[in-house]
Amino acid sequence: MKRWEVVRSGILNDIQARAFENGRLPGDFVLAERFGVNRHTVRNAIKALESEGALRVQHGVGTFVADDFVSHKLDSDPRFTFRLLGQNKSVKRQIISITDASVEPEIIKHLKIAPPALVTEVRSISFINDWPLATGTAYYPVERVPGLATAFEGLNSPTAALKRCGIPEYKRKWTRITARRPTQQEAQLLRISSSSPVLFETNVDVTPDGLPIKYAFSAIRSDRYEYLIESND
């Protein structure tokens, strides 16, 4: 077995054991020292693993385990799990808190409700194959989605909770994507540095008759996520 193949095998074993913290490989020098080879040999092994789809190399950023990366197709279907079908990904959402509260005018405007109407605020964090991917907050107007907090009992799925509230169908009206630095809390939840940029997504979901039922924002790890826009042509 050639030296680069030994390195390739060793890295694969580490991937399967989830040995790389946050899904990121150490630098070439560290790996070369560990395996007792030169950097060129390490790079050959990484190149082979990248071509096999096991690793993802972002030049100037680092090398990452490929199964922590998500390609998200932008369309009118808001169901995140649905969009991951066929990508061999395991998605999990953890609810951090659910409360009823009053909100700022900007959110009221997007939900088209009259103050001082209350909203159900749902804070959560999402994981892909046990790696943190996104954290955010969703706001649902209490008058349109009554009993949502109770509906979430035993569930981590907004779609399933909304069905319990009598809303079996809804769609994405719009999505806005920008980039910024994470807040201290976001960085902690996503296990990233406060200097690492995140994708910041805001969106509104509506019922089939166009009534807003959710306004949400999310901070998403930019090193694990991409948006795919396909033409209808």
Rank of each mutant, 00 (worst) to 15 (best):
K73I: 13
D68C: 08
F64T: 05
E106W: 02
S76D: 13
F80Y: 05
H59E: 13
V70P: 00
S97I: 08
I107K: 00
K92Q: 10
F82Y: 12
F80I: 11
H72M: 13
T63G: 04
Q58F: 09
A66Q: 11
F69Y: 10
P105S: 13
K89P: 05
S71N: 09
Q87H: 06
G60L: 02
A101G: 12
R79L: 09
I95Y: 00
D68F: 01
E106K: 02
H59K: 12
E106H: 03
E104C: 11
S76A: 07
R83Q: 15
V70R: 00
I96Y: 05
P78C: 08
V103N: 00
R79A: 14
A101S: 09
S102L: 14
P105T: 11
V57Q: 14
K73R: 13
K92E: 15
F82T: 15
I96T: 06
L85Q: 05
D75S: 07
D77E: 11
G60F: 04
S71D: 08
I96M: 08
G86T: 13
G86R: 06
T99I: 10
S90N: 08
E104S: 05
E104A: 03
I95S: 03
V103Y: 00
E106F: 05
L55H: 01
F80Q: 03
F64A: 03
H72E: 07
L55G: 00
G62F: 01
V61Q: 12
Q58R: 14
H59V: 15
T63N: 03
D77R: 07
F80E: 07
